[in-house]
Design a protein around this nucleic acid. Structure first.
Lengths: 351, 351
DNA sequence: CCTTCTTTCTGTAACGATACAGAGCTTGTC
DNA sequence: GACAAGCTCTGTATCGTTACAGAAAGAAGG
C-alpha cells in the first residue's frame, strides 16, 4: 500500500504548485492566497502528508528549538530527587514561555563504560544549547558537552571558563547552619552526607563541600573535631539517609550528638524517619536541619528546618542564561539567594 | 576571528582525505586505519570542529534517537505531580537502556491559544515516536500528534484507533475502593476530585470517570446518592485538595461522611492535611483512601490506603511499546495490575 | 605469476526542507 | 496610459551529513 512517504515535492506536484508554495502553506500562511493554501492542504491530506519534516527544517533553519539537559545522576535516579525535579520544573517554566522543548539525555549503561555512551549520546543530541546539572568536573560528559561548541550553562557545578554558572556556594551555605545550631546551645554534632565513590551514582560536588563547609565553621566556633560525627549514606535517597543514621541513634544518649546537619533535605527526612523509628524525639532529643527546601520539607512533621536555595529559580535562570547566549546577548551569572528557614525540627538541646 | 563553522569538508581538506573518511573517523572507527583516524581527529581539533552535525546526521539517517512526550498539564505543573514524575521515571529507565533521549514538549501560552501553540511545537518536534500522557480525547495536541504519522502510544487516555494504550480502567479501579470501605462499615461517603473545566489546567479523564466508578459501585451496594458528598478541588495539588475538604470537615460530626475517597493520592494527602488541621482523627473519625501509591503515600502519617497502579511500570511499558513499533514488531497493550494497599488511613467508622 | 581477499579510502547521490531574490500579474494613482 | 506598489507564486542554491557501491593497493593462496 503506502509506498514512500510523501514529501513537499509530492504534495507540490499534486496541488499543481511549486514546492515553496507548499512550504509557505505550512510556515507562512500570509505569503499565499487562502484559496491556494486550502488546495495545498487538501492535497496534503489526500496524500497523507505528515507536514514538513522537522529534522530537515531544522537543518535548513540552523536551529532546533530545543535545549538539552544533562543531569548528575542517571536519569531515572534524577526523578527520585525532589530537588532535581524542582530544578526541572523551573527550566520547563522558562522554556514554555520561549516555546522551546527540553531534551533529557539519559546516562545509559553504568560503570566506566558510561563515559563513552554518554559522550556518544551527547554527540547526537539535537540541541541549540546545553545545561549541565551538578556534574563532577571530571565527568566525561562535561568534556563532551564542551566539544559540542554550543552555548553552555552549568547549575551547581562545575565552574567552566566562559560558561555562566547558576548556583550557590556550597561551603558558605552549609556554614550558615553551624552558628545557628551552635547558638541554640548544641555542642555535639553529626553530619549526614552521601559517601564518596558510590557505585553507579556519581557524586555531586555538594556531598563533599557541604560537610566541610559546615565542619570548618564549627571548628571556627570552637567545636572539636571529635565532637562531630560523620554519617555516610550509601546513596542519595530517603531510605539510605534513614539507614545511615541507625548506628548514630543507637549510641547512648549522653554521648549522642544533639544536632544533625544533613547536606540535603532528602537525607534529613530520612534521618527524621530513623528518629521516629527509634523513638528519638525531634527536636527534643535531636535537632535536624537540611538544605534545599524541597516541598516535602515543610510538610514533614515536625516541619524541617532547612536552607532555601531557590531551586526552582535556579532552573529558570539556567534556561534564561542559555537563551540569552543564543540571542547573542551578554550574560552574567545571577546570584542565588540562600535563606535559613527555621522550622520545627530544630530547638535547643535537651536539659 | 572565527568565520564559519567548519564542516566535514573543511576537516577533510585539512586532513587531506575525503569527506567520507572524516565521517567514518567519527562513526566507524573500524573502517579506517588508526593512523588516518588520528590525523583526521587532529585536524578537527585544530579547526575547532564540533563533530558531525546531529541534525544533518539525523536527516540522513532518518532517525532522531528521541522519543517525545506530551503531558496532560502544562509541563511545569506536571513536575509538581509525583504520579507524573513516577511515569517519567519509568520512561527514562527504559530509554536509558535503549540509548535514546526524551523530548519534553511544553505547552506554551495558556487559554485557547494554547491549542495552536502546542500543535505548532509538536509539528517541529524531532522525534521518532510520541507518547501521549493522559490527554483529553478532544485535546488539539492529540490531533496534531496523529498528523505526525509517527508511532504513537497513549498512557491513561485516550483510546485511539490503532494506538496501543497503557493504563488502567479508571471506573473499575475506583470501584474497587467502594466495597472495601463499605465492608468496613461506612455508610456516609465523600469523594474528592478536581472540578471540571478549571482554568489553565486541562482535566485528566480520571477526574470524571473515577468518581463515577466509585459512586456507581456504592449505589450497587445500596448507598443512597444523598449519602455521597462530592468535593471539587480547584486544581490537582495537595493544597487544593486540602482547601476543598474544608467545608466538609466543618459539618457536624453526626452528618459528616466517615470515609473519603480521593481520586488521587495528592488529593488524599491534601485531605489528610486538612483533617490534621481541623483536629479530625484519621482514621478514627474519618477514613481516607486514594489512588496511585505515590512515594509520599506510604510515608504519610498515618500511611495512606491506596491503589497501586504501577505508574513506574506504565512509563516503562509505554516506551517499550513505542520502541517495538519503531522496530516494526507487533505490539499488544499490556495489562496494568491494580492492587488495593490497605494501610493506616482507613478503619471502621466511629462507634 | 595470477587470482582472490582484505583493508582502506573515495565519489556520487540522496535525506527533505527553507532563504532569498525575483517574476508575473493586478491594482491604484495621477 | 505609464509607473509604482502589492500580492502571489516560483527557481535556485544550499543546510551538513551518511548510505552505498566501488576503486586502489597490498596480503594471501595456489
Amino acid at each position: 500500500m503506502a509506498s514512500d512517504r510523501p514529501t513537499l515535492d509530492t504534495v507540490a506536484a499534486v496541488a499543481g504548485v511549486s514546492r515553496m508554495t507548499v512550504s509557505n502553506a505550512y510556515n507562512r500562511p500570509d505569503q499565499l492566497s487562502a484559496a491556494t493554501r486550502e488546495r495545498v492542504l487538501a492535497a496534503a491530506a489526500t496524500l497523507g502528508y505528515a507536514g514538513p519534516d522537522p529534522t530537515a527544517a531544522s537543518l535548513r533553519r540552523q536551529r532546533t528549538g530545543t535545549i538539552g539537559v544533562i543531569l548528575t545522576e542517571r536519569l531515572p535516579y534524577a526523578f527520585t530527587d525532589p530537588g532535581m525535579v524542582e530544578i526541572l520544573r523551573g527550566m520547563t517554566t522558562e522554556l514554555s514561555d520561549a516555546g522551546m522543548s527540553l531534551l533529557l539525555v539519559p546516562e545509559s549503561g553504568g560503570e566506566d563504560d558510561s563515559s563513552n555512551r554518554t559522550a556518544e549520546l551527547l554527540r547526537h543530541a539535537m540541541v541549540d544549547a546545553l545545561v549541565l546539572c551538578s556534574l563532577d568536573p571530571g565527568d566525561p560528559a562535561v568534556a563532551a558537552a564542551q566539544e559540542r561548541k554550543v552555548p553552555l550553562v552549568t547549575i551547581g557545578h562545575p565552574k567552566l571558563p566562559h560558561v555562566p554558572m547558576v548556583g550557590i556556594d556550597n561551603e558558605k551555605t552549609a556554614a550558615m547552619v553551624a552558628p545557628y545550631l551552635y547558638g541554640l546551645g548544641h555542642r555535639r554534632f553529626a553530619v549526614l552526607t552521601v559517601g564518596a565513590g558510590i557505585y553507579g551514582i556519581r557524586n555531586r560536588p555538594g556531598f563533599i563541600s557541604r560537610p566541610s563547609g559546615f565542619i570548618d565553621e564549627l571548628t571556627r566556633l570552637g567545636v572539636k573535631a571529635e565532637d562531630v560525627v560523620i554519617c555516610e549514606a550509601s546513596e542519595h535517597s530517603r531510605s539510605a539517609g534513614k539507614a545511615a543514621v541507625g548506628a548514630l541513634l543507637a549510641t547512648p544518649t549522653k554521648k549522642r550528638p544533639t544536632a544533625l546537619f544533613a547536606v540535603t533535605d532528602i537525607l534529613a527526612l530520612g534521618a527524621m524517619d530513623a528518629a521516629a523509628g527509634a523513638g528519638v524525639d525531634v527536636p527534643g532529643e535531636l535537632s535536624i536541619a537540611g538544605i534545599d527546601d524541597i516541598p516535602d520539607a515543610a510538610a514533614a512533621s515536625p516541619p524541617l528546618t532547612t536552607i532555601d536555595q531557590e531551586l526552582f529559580e535556579q532552573g529558570r535562570a539556567a534556561i534564561r542564561l542559555a537563551l540569552r547566549q543564543l540571542a547573542g546577548e551578554p550574560v552574567r551569572a545571577p546570584r542565588t539567594k540562600t535563606e535559613l528557614l527555621v522550622r520545627g525540627s530544630t530547638a535547643a538541646p535537651p536539659r
